[in-house]
């Protein structure tokens, strides 16, 4: 029966570049994002995306970092010894034992979003497991301004997991099912996840369908996040990163409230909004590695340096269909 099902559980994701010539994989840099709920690893070779892995964060941050790295590296036979530079980011970034440097998730999400969705991105909403941030950046993905809130489960992935469990709806179906309603109900009145839980139960008792309760909950979450975005102001293009970025029940309702549509990744895109932080970290690792090599090169009087990030390669991966 359903008693044993874990409705909050989202699927782990793994991706490797197809037809990869293992011999050609050199100058590997890694980005490890250890969040409160999920951990990701992204591997680049010469600035080109070759692998990523996304998993749940366990009770130990260092273990989660290692597990994420192995998930991305093992399918390609890449070990830590093959990695030239590693950047750790996220809530548990100080706990990435093999990182050469740590960089805040704010800078990493901006850089990752810039790479993923293109240089037109100016406003990023990062909806993570534990908090929510709005970031403004320039055309190079450099952060200009950001806003972050104190940690509260309302409007975060963790809050969504709680609701998935209370309503016995698999978390990945919440977005779709929240639109299976005749008319949009008013948002639940309690923002606090603890109180929203009991409100959801009483709405069900009052005869609401599960879908209607989901809609009311997603709407409340969207309202809370929209308030944060409006404080910062939205400049186009707008892009959503983080795990909740995959929940259309929340993202569509945010778009409705702020009157701006978010950039969508094309159907065949390999990117996942949840890896934006780790991707940004891997890109930072690539630049920092190049800088270090250059310094060494200058010191040794040699000229050989790594190539810059291969933007052409990015275009191969993702045809930049401008707009959406």
């Amino acid at each position: 029966m359903d008693g044993q099902r874990e409705f909050w559980r989202w699927s782990e994701r793994s991706w490797q570049a197809p037809d990869l010539d293992r011999q050609a994989v050199t100058a590997v840099t890694a980005g490890i994002d250890v969040g409160s709920v999920s951990s990701q690893a992204v591997l680049l070779a010469g600035g080109r995306l070759v692998s990523f892995f996304s998993t749940r964060t366990g009770s130990s941050s260092p273990d989660s970092a290692v597990r994420a790295f192995k998930g991305a590296g093992e399918p390609l036979g890449i070990t830590l010894d093959d990695v030239s530079y590693t950047v750790g980011t996220g809530y548990g970034r100080v706990n990435v034992p093999f990182a050469d440097r740590t960089i805040t998730e704010i800078a990493c999400h901006a850089r990752g979003a810039n790479f993923m969705a293109g240089p037109a991105v100016r406003t990023i909403l990062d909806m993570g497991g534990q908090d929510c941030k709005v970031i403004r950046c320039d055309e190079r993905g450099k952060v200009l301004n950001f806003i972050m809130n104190d940690k509260c489960a309302a409007g975060t992935g963790r809050g969504m997991e709680v609701i998935a469990d209370v309503l016995s709806v698999p978390i990945e179906e919440i977005g779709r099912r929240s639109f299976e309603i005749d008319d949009e109900p008013p948002p639940v009145s309690n923002v606090c996840t603890v109180f929203a839980k009991s409100e959801a139960t009483s709405l069900l008792r009052a005869g609401w369908s599960v879908e209607r309760v989901l809609a009311a909950y997603c709407a409340a979450m969207a309202q809370r996040v929209a308030g944060l975005i409006e404080r910062m102001g939205v400049e186009r293009e707008f892009f959503i990163t983080g795990g909740i970025g995959k929940n259309v029940g929340v993202t569509r309702r945010i778009e409705r409230l702020i009157g701006v549509e978010a950039l969508r990744l094309p159907e065949d895109s390999v990117f996942d909004p949840q890896i934006a932080g780790a991707l940004g970290a891997a890109l930072f690792a690539h630049s920092l590695h190049r800088k270090r090599e250059k310094e060494r090169g200058v010191a040794a009087g040699a000229g050989a340096v790594m190539p810059p990030v291969d933007t052409a390669a990015r275009k191969d991966l993702w045809p930049p269909a401008a707009g959406r």
Binding site: S36, Q130, K151, C152, A153, R158, C192, T193, V194
Partner: peptide, 17 residues
């Protein structure tokens, strides 16, 4: 560290562990 009830629950669990 956690201020929110939802996160504090996990923190208490890890303190127990």
């Amino acid at each position: 560290n956690a201020q929110c009830t939802v996160f504090a629950e996990s923190e208490v669990v890890s303190l127990i562990h």
